[in-house]
């Protein structure tokens, strides 16, 4: 089963690499996405000597790490899933000897691998143009990686939830953009969470998104104590399980609908 999933992941990776241009274009896009943010903060820093309470190096590093993590957090196979539902391909996928979730988790592994490579390339390119801070310590760096790995079940479950909408609607495009927008706001992609109003920060504490971008970057920068990191890890595991169960429940419900009343 694990072998099948790894094989699926590898195939997904191969699919991406059939067109070498993909890699360059995706990396270029990631850089373009972040350029504006960095220049805006630099301008503010030059005016006021302060960039939202952070030093300019911290702010620049923050956004470069956002560009690095963004594909890892946002990419996935929910559109493939919706497509398979729409054109009936799902019938074949439901006849696989591994479960539908395992099949798509395999794809997610491939996505994750490719997104990581694009993220790293983005990081390297950005590091040429701007000064990037190194991690606070090796331990902080390892914890940074660990927290990112822990976010995989969360992002995968979100992918599956959006993909499952394909059973009910012809186009998941709207849901897809909504998912991206929600993650962008709540995870800290557009700006560090501390720059948001207090009520928003309070609300955000009850949601799982902050741990996808904002928290790992702050661990990287050494802004979070080890005790806090322990709590964050527990919180993330609980969110992963909850969201996975929700995704599974939603999917099973949708499949039941299809198996009872045809495709």
């Amino acid at each position: 089963m694990l072998k099948s999933m790894l094989k699926i992941g590898k195939m997904r990776w191969q699919e991406y690499n059939i067109y070498p241009s993909n890699f360059y274009l995706f990396t270029l896009n990631r850089i373009v996405e972040v350029v504006v943010y960095i220049f805006v903060w630099q301008a503010i820093y030059n005016q006021t000597g302060n960039a939202g309470g952070l030093s300019i190096e911290q702010m620049v590093t923050y956004y470069i790490l956002v560009a690095t993590l963004r594909p890892i957090i946002l990419w996935g196979c929910n559109e493939d899933m919706a497509y398979s539902i729409r054109n009936g391909q799902i019938h074949k996928e439901l006849l696989n000897p591994i479960s539908y979730f395992q099949y798509y988790f395999g794809m997610e592994i491939g996505e994750f691998a490719f997104a990581t490579v694009v993220g790293l390339a983005t990081f390297v390119c950005c590091a040429i143009f701007w000064k990037v801070m190194i991690p606070a310590s090796i331990l902080h760096f390892l914890l940074f990686i660990f927290i990112i790995l822990l976010s995989v079940p969360i992002t995968f479950s979100l992918q599956m939830i959006v993909g499952t909408v394909g059973f009910y609607s012809n186009s998941i495009w709207g849901m897809q953009i909504l998912r991206t927008a929600i993650i962008s706001i709540f995870s800290g992609i557009i700006a560090p969470i501390t720059l948001f109003p207090q009520w928003f920060q309070t609300l955000n504490n009850f949601l799982p998104f902050k741990e996808l971008i904002y928290t790992p970057i702050n661990i990287y920068l050494g802004q979070i104590s080890l005790n806090e990191i322990g709590i964050i890890i527990i919180k993330q595991i609980i969110w992963g399980i909850l969201l996975y169960m929700l995704a599974k429940f939603f999917f099973n419900h949708a499949v039941k609908k299809v198996t009872i009343n045809g495709g």
Binding site: Y37, V40, W41, I44, Q47, T48, N50, A51, G52, S171, W173, G174, Q176, I177, L178, T180, A181, S184, I185, I190, A191, L195, F196
Partner: peptide, 25 residues
């Protein structure tokens, strides 16, 4: 209609960034 609303939503995210920026300057 769904597409339209979601595009507006995406732009609002960008505008939120601008708003946050102007909290600092």
């Amino acid at each position: 209609i769904v597409g339209m609303l979601s595009q507006i939503f995406t732009e609002l995210v960008e505008i939120l960034f601008i708003w946050i920026v102007f909290q600092n300057t």
